[in-house]
Each structure stands twice: as C-alpha cells, then as structure tokens.
C-alpha cells in the first residue's frame, strides 16, 4: 500500500486537502490503475463505515429513550452503550422479541436506496383512496425544549393545550372527509370533521360551528402542522420521500413484487427519519402489508402538536365505508343544537 497516496485519500475524504494536494492526488490517480484501485477500496470502506454506523445510530436512537441521553458527554461511546443495552434487552426478552431482533438484523443491512424504491412502490399501492378508521394512542409527550419528558400514564392531568389525542378515533374517507373524535378527561366527546363541503366542530357545550374553509377545523389532525395528516396517504408518503431518510426492514432481497403470492399477511416496517432542517415529525414508522401495501399502523415520533412534541400511534381498525353522510356534522349531534356558520 502506498502510504503517501493513502494519506492524500484520507485528506480528500475529510476535506482537508489544499488545492495543490488535490492536484497531486488527481495526478497520482491518473498515474496507474493500481492507484485507482487503492482509491476505490478506500471509498468502499469509507462508504460502508457510514452505512454501518448510521444503522447502529438508528437502532440506538430507538432502543435508548432520549431522556437517558447525555448529549454533552463524549467520554464513552454511545454506540458501545447501545450495543450493550441491546444485548441486555435481548437476554431479558429472549423469545418474545425474537421476531423483532430478526427484523433489526435485516434492517442493518438494508440499503438506503432499496428502501427508497420500496417507498415508491408503497406510494403506488396507496394511490387509491379508501375509507379507513384509526385508533390513536399517545405514547409520549415531550415539551418543545425536549429536556423534560413525561409519560402519559404517570401524569394524566398534564395535557397539551390542544384536545388530547390519546384514545381519539379518526375516520377517514377520501382526501377531505374525516371525523376525529376526541375523548375528554370527563368522558365527553369533542368532534371535528369535514364532509368535503363544510368543515365543522362539535364541542360538548356551545354551538356547533361550521365553515366553508375545509381546513378550518382540521388543526387537531395528527400531522396537521406539516400537512402530513395521512388523509391522502400517497401524498404524505411522497412528502416522506422528499424530506426523510428511508429504511425498510426486514430486507430480504425478495421484494420484487408487492403483490407477490406467498406474502400473505407478512408485514414490513418502513422507517423514515427526518432530514436536517426539514419540518415534521422526527421519525415516521409505517407497518404495512407486504402483499397489498395496506398500511396497518403509523407511528409519528416527536410530532409537533401545539407547543409539544407527541409520539403517537395510529392503528388501522377497519376499512368500512360509512358513506358520505357519516361525515356531515348533523349525524353527530342532536337536532336541537345551534349551528353557526363562520
């Protein structure tokens, strides 16, 4: 191995070469195929190192809750800690998470670009609008600063200023029709919705409010802040394609055809990590049917919701089409209620 060339290549990778040194590297590469071979070898190692470390980072970011992190402390490798924690978790949960481990092993070797093509297929598979009902669960609420976290079961009284999303039910039909039913702390319901002509809000007390602005009462929809509401799934997936790093697990080199027979009920997890400076939830996880591309669960991690960052799970409950009238406000309140159009 040519040490001098190696040093020039390292400087090139780290962007530390002067213009003179760069010219020297270029002429050394021009000199012989052997030198180019050395360069190619170094590029492959550098590139694979990045892919491997990013995969480890992603695993650790999921396995280690942010509350336990000490961002400023660099004395000990988080990568090492993640590996140790992974081992401990595996030894404790053994059979119960065996499937999960298999998924992750597959994930680590999953290529970024193969995942991108998988997302493209998923977009095509979800281009048709269908009626769906989701059960929403809030897993975690983090304050905007990200420094103080609280778990929902521990502090039920602490609620975001927006209506609570935990236990909410979301009915969706087409790109504009929805009914979002929040259950308030006292058990009463707060509904918002849109039938495609009017958007509306029904609070437990006061008048029913309607608006011809179809977005007027859609502010409480998960993902609304960055237009990632999953009402129109293919469009939201396209947003992920543009602004997120995509991974799919497991990667079995056998996803040539999403409609392949033999993939009945098999599920795959698509993970989208928000790119730097992009708006939206920090991470979006989508569990979908390998055979049909049907999305069964959506998890939005650190999703902006008012002043807070929520981690929520939307689980597909049914695909019954309740018809367009279900999405009209009159179907959800008594005839005696006052209706005000804004």
């Amino acid at each position: 191995m040519d040490r001098e060339l190696q040093s020039l290549i390292a400087g090139y990778l780290d962007d530390l070469l002067t213009a003179e040194q760069f010219s020297e590297l270029e002429s050394r590469l021009r000199e012989s195929p052997g030198n180019r071979q050395q360069f190619v070898t170094e590029m492959l190692l550098h590139d694979r190192l990045r892919a491997t470390m990013m995969a480890e980072e992603l695993v650790s970011s999921i396995l280690i809750p942010p509350a336990t992190e000490s961002p400023g402390v660099v004395g000990r490798s988080r990568w090492l800690r993640a590996r140790r924690l992974t081992g401990a978790v595996l030894s404790l949960l053994v059979m119960g998470i065996a499937a999960f481990v298999i998924l992750w092993n597959g994930f680590i070797d999953t290529s970024v670009s193969a995942a991108a093509t998988e997302l493209t297929r998923l977009i095509a598979a979800n281009a048709t609008e269908t009626a769906r009902t989701y059960q929403i669960a809030v897993e975690d609420i983090a304050l905007k600063s990200g420094k103080k976290r609280r778990q929902i079961p521990d502090e039920k009284s602490a609620r975001p200023p927006k209506p609570p999303l935990d236990n909410a039910v979301l009915h969706v039909r087409g790109a504009e029709q929805f009914v979002l039913i929040h259950t308030l702390a006292d058990g009463q319901k707060l509904l918002t919705g849109c039938d495609g002509r009017l958007s509306w809000s029904i609070r437990p007390d006061g008048p029913v409010r309607t608006s011809r602005d179809l977005t007027r009462f859609s502010h409480d929809l998960p993902g609304h802040e960055h237009s990632m509401t999953f009402l129109k799934i293919d469009e939201t997936l396209q947003q992920l394609q543009r602004g997120y790093e995509i991974r799919v697990l497991p990667d079995d080199n056998d996803r040539d055809d999403l409609t392949a027979e033999g993939a009945d009920n098999a599920e795959r997890l698509l993970i989208a990590m928000r790119r730097r400076k992009m708006p939206g939830p920090e991470r979006v996880e989508i569990v979908y049917d390998v055979g049909t591309g049907e999305i069964r669960q959506i998890r939005l991690v650190a999703m902006p919701y008012g002043p807070d960052r929520l981690t929520i799970r939307m689980t597909l409950q049914e695909r019954t089409d309740f018809g367009v009238s279900f999405f009209e406000h009159a179907q959800h309140h008594g005839a005696d209620r006052t209706v005000i159009e804004e």
Binding site: R48, S111, S113, A114, R275, R276
Partner: peptide
Amino acid sequence: MRHWTLAQPVVSAFVMSVVRDFSE
C-alpha cells in the same frame, strides 16, 4: 431489484468518491 441491491454499495461508494458530503 435484486441486481440493484447487490450493486448499490458500489454505486454508493462511487457517488461518495465525487460528492463527499454524506447527506448530499
């Protein structure tokens, strides 16, 4: 698709050899 999965690491390294910024 299978071809791409196998070729992807090499293509990735080739791109890296000219565009060194990871996110780009």
